[in-house]
Structure formats: C-alpha cells, structure tokens
C-alpha cells in the first residue's frame, strides 16, 4: 500500500499530526493487511526523526509496517553514526541503498493520496487513534454517526468524560507526558523545548527521552534544563507513562496530554484518559492547562 502525501505541512504541524490525520481518515484498520510505503513531497520534506514517527504509527492505522525509500536525507543521517559503514564500505553501502526504492511502474494493492497543506495540529478525543480531529474542532456527536461507530463513540466519550459539541480547546488536562518510541527523539524534545523555553507549565508532567543517547544529547543541548525550569520532571529513557510502566501511571479519571501512540482504555493506567498529540502540542497543553493549538506559541521562535 502506498500513501502519497502531497504538498507541504504547515508551520507547527508535524509527522505526528500527519499520522493521526490519515488514521482518522482511513480508520484504525485502514491499512490492515498492508505494508505501507510513504511517498510524496511532504514525506521527502520530513527529517529521519519525522519519518520514524510516521512509520512507527503505521501500526495504529492497522498496518504491518511502514517505510520510506532511502534518499540523501537518510544517507546524511546515517553517515558517521555508530555502526555505520566507513570509508569504501560506506560508498558500497550507499550504492546498495540507492537501489531500495519502488520502481516507477510498481503496482500497489492500494493507493491513497493525502494533501498535507490543510492538516492542522491534531488531537485524539476518544479511545482509538482513529478518533482524532483538528484542535480547532469540537468533540463530535455520536448521534451523527452510524452503526458500530456510534456505540464506540458513546463509550469513548463516556470513558473520556467529554460532552459532544464542546470545543476541543476547552478540554482541561491534569498532566502531560512527552516521550515514547513514537515521539521521544531529539527533534521532538527540541520542538517541545522551543515552545516551553522561558515559560511555565500550569500542570505537572514528565519528559522521558527516547533513549539514553537522546537523554545525553538533550542535556548537552540544554533542553533538559528548559523542561525542568518550566516545571516538568526530566526522567530516564524508557516506555514510562506510554504504557503505565515502572510506576509512571496516570491515575483513574485523570486526563493526560501525551505524545505517545495509543489512547486505549487503561493504557496509561486504569481509568486513565489519554489524548494523543505531537510533543509540541503536549507542550502547549502544559502551558495552558488545556488542549491547545501550539501554533501561536511557536510564533516568533525560530
């Protein structure tokens, strides 16, 4: 299956928003039975970190895996890294990798096109990743849905403690979490730190870097300090609050803005209410104490 994303993502709109957008459009089983190749201008324009987020979330759309054909961005990312081939072996590797693209006339079982330009920062309101909407929208009304969807949406709103018709931006959160294999990379932390720098979080939160290496890098770049000065806790790398592990739990009935991949019932703890969004959007939720559009908070910050 190929998902071609044309155009360019707007400012403050990330790979996470793109992924939640297509999953909302095609469903949490939209890519069932498929390996997904992501293609198109918007994908080429993503960094490796962004592509990893997009591919990681293929599972949330029901796919078996996601991939992006290697290009110069890939080679630049790999060159000089630990375990990357060196010298002549590097040139041989790049020559091999350059062959790893779909032929121009390749056939796909399914082709989907998505326009990147209209995508807004996106958040989930329910208990499946497909239950996602632009932050500018309102909580949907199950009465307008059909069949199984309606029952699922009613159960989701009940679990999430939300009323149909309320603006998503009015939903108050109790805490925030930045981290996970989906969005715990250095770029994620940089973007969240850009939003939080010199500002104070209104709610408590945890930041767990994606790996020990990312942790070290974030500390060297001064990002850790930005998080702690904003009032958030800087933790070790791990699955952490994404899956309610190691004591990093969201209590029953509490609402968490989370940069993770799954908003399933009980995922972050029994009775926990999870809203999925980009790390930048989590940072905006931390600053305001409610779901919020991050774009104004990025203005004037390069």
């Amino acid at each position: 299956m190929r998902i071609t994303i044309t155009g360019a993502l707007g400012a403050g709109v990330t790979a996470k928003d793109l992924a939640l957008h297509w999953i909302a459009k095609l469903g949490a089983d939209g890519a069932r039975g498929h390996a997904i190749e992501y293609a198109g201008e918007a994908v080429r324009g993503l960094s490796i970190e962004g592509r990893l987020t997009l591919c990681n979330l293929s599972i949330e759309g029901g796919g078996r895996l996601g991939l992006v054909a290697p290009d110069q961005v890939t080679f630049d990312y790999l060159k000089g890294r630990n375990f990357a081939p060196k010298g002549a072996a590097w040139d041989a590797a790049v020559a091999d990798w350059k062959l790893l693209h779909s032929d121009p006339d390749a056939g796909f079982d399914r082709e989907v096109a998505v326009d990147a330009a209209p995508i807004a920062p996106t958040v989930t309101w329910g208990t499946s990743p497909e239950e996602a909407l632009p932050i500018t929208a309102r909580v949907p009304d199950p009465a307008t849905m059909s069949g199984g969807k309606q029952a699922q949406a009613r159960a989701a709103l009940d679990y999430m403690g939300l009323e149909a018709g309320m603006p998503l931006e009015s939903v108050a959160v109790d805490q925030v979490f930045i981290g996970s294999c989906t969005n715990g990379r250095i770029e994620d932390l940089r973007l969240a730190a850009k939003v939080l720098a010199g500002r104070q979080a209104k709610v408590p939160g945890l930041v767990s870097p994606g790996s020990a290496q990312v942790k070290k890098q974030a500390e060297a770049e001064g990002l850790a300090q930005i998080f702690t000065r904003a009032g958030l806790e800087w933790a070790d790398a791990g699955c952490s609050m994404c899956v309610g592990m190691n004591g990093d739990l969201v209590e029953a009935g509490k609402r968490c803005a989370s940069s993770t991949n799954r908003n399933f019932k009980g995922r972050q703890g029994r009775g926990a209410r999870t809203h999925l969004m980009s790390p930048a959007m989590v940072a905006a939720a931390a600053l305001t104490g409610h779901l919020a559009d991050v774009r104004p908070y990025l203005e004037g910050r390069s």
Binding site: A155, R262, K265, G266
Partner: peptide, 12 residues
C-alpha cells in the same frame, strides 16, 4: 465491541 485492543485484552 469494535477495536478490542491488546491493552484491553491484557493490561500491561
């Protein structure tokens, strides 16, 4: 139910 997910089937 739809979407009976793995977290519901067995919490982590």
């Amino acid at each position: 139910q739809e979407n009976v997910d793995t977290d519901q089937l067995i919490p982590a």
